[in-house]
Amino acid sequence: MNVLEVSDLKKHFPIRAGLLQREVGRVRAVDGVSFHIAEGETLALVGESGCGKTTVSRCILRAQSVTSGAIRFRPEDGREVDLATLPKRELRPLRRHLQMIFQDPYASLNPRMMVGDIIAEPLKVNGVPAAERQARVLELLELVQLPASARTRFPHAFSGGQRQRIGIARALALHPRLVVADEPVSALDVSVQAQIINLLLDLQDRLSLSMLFVAHDLGVVRHISDRVAVMYVGRMVEVAPTDALYRSPRHPYTEALLAAVPAPDPARRGRRIPVTGEVADPARPPPGCAFHPRCPYAVERCRTEQPNLGEVEPGRWVSCHRAKELSLAGVA
């Protein structure tokens, strides 16, 4: 059963200019993206800045309107809604099923509220009685491994890692169907990051969380996700089970991304050849496949014809004209 099915999602931002603010072009931030998240599954959405991964997550949360496409969400068994077209009024009761973990644990907690009240806030808004709220807050603090005494303290008394735990407790308060985590560990130091990664792994096991994990760090992603979706300039280039994607990528951009990560092992030094060029401008994407100017395998067809995401083997989708003939290098 899929919790979320995104199909052909597009989000274009108009570029306006001149006295009359006429539309002179469009930034195709997200340009036809499809993927799904099964119940209990963590899907990582990866890519470099400007690839549209954050825009996708904002569309799902409807923090952003959608240009076209469908975002089918199953808040409860037997019910399905399209978040892309749902009127704002009908969106509100769904919010409890769709929660978010933010990147910056310093900016996302109200400094004037006690931690207990921060975690209880979503419960209160959704009409959970006070006595029940108390019990649930204690349960949640235990779940994220914070002491019960944290309830009566303010966010500033906590370190970055502890604040991220508070944010996670708040997101889980209402047993959401889907959690969207946007770079939840990228602001943390390595030693603290490891704690939060382990906590998320525990929570996946204990609560069978369904999660969209937006991230740029491919190391973190390998630890935490069941499947990975790779984006490049507004489009999906590859979707695959995590281990398969790292061991044998099928899209040249995935290969380039993996090769670019410096491995913490001096013996592997100098073995990689970095991809040349820079990420294309989504306001003026190159014709054909957007990756072709940087792709060492590009042929004439890649310069003119845009490839579509197709299933090259069960569970593996790739958007590359040469997906079936190329043999690309992964990391063991």
Binding site: V190, A194, I197, L201, D217, H223, L258, A263
Partner: peptide, 16 residues
């Protein structure tokens, strides 16, 4: 504690 692109699926990290 460093996450690795060579990790096994759902591999936990040693923490400090």
């Amino acid at each position: 504690a460093v996450p690795s692109i060579l990790a096994t699926p759902r591999q936990r990290l040693s923490t400090i």
